[in-house]
């Protein structure tokens, strides 16, 4: 199955990746090859197989409800691109 440039544009938008027009053909080609590779899966009938989401056959372990974290805002925001008065800044969000 071959992807079209429009597919790549759609995927790139969903993944929030800027892809230039110039790079698009290479992505179309490479992604199509990869999708062809994984398409080999279709040769096997898996009707009665239970999906395996995880290698470990274990159940969730729960933690007790206790506050164990302290305020580390200064440390965390020291590595942030843009902060002001304790909040992270981004271009205006429109709801």
């Amino acid at each position: 199955m071959s992807l079209q440039p429009s597919d790549v544009e759609k995927i790139a938008h969903l993944a929030r990746l800027a892809v230039s027009e110039q790079d698009t053909p290479a992505y179309v080609r490479n992604l199509s090859n990869i999708i062809d590779l994984v398409g080999q899966m279709n040769a096997v009938d898996t009707t009665h197989v239970t999906p395996m989401a995880h290698p470990l056959d274990m159940a969730a372990r729960l933690r007790p409800d206790a506050v164990t974290e302290i305020n580390q805002r200064e440390r965390f925001q020291a590595i942030a691109p843009e902060v002001d008065a304790g909040v992270y800044l981004v271009p205006k969000v429109i709801e």
């Binding site: 992807l3 969903l14 898996t46 999906p51």
Partner: peptide, 30 residues
């Protein structure tokens, strides 16, 4: 990295999940 993010986004997206992701999980079991 971008290629893999895009492949991953594609196989999880609406209409493809069963054919790719779920199928892969089943084969993972095999």
């Amino acid at each position: 990295v971008k290629r893999r993010i895009m492949v991953g986004t594609y196989v999880l997206s609406a209409g493809y999940y069963d054919a790719y992701y779920l199928k892969a999980q089943k084969l993972r079991r095999l």
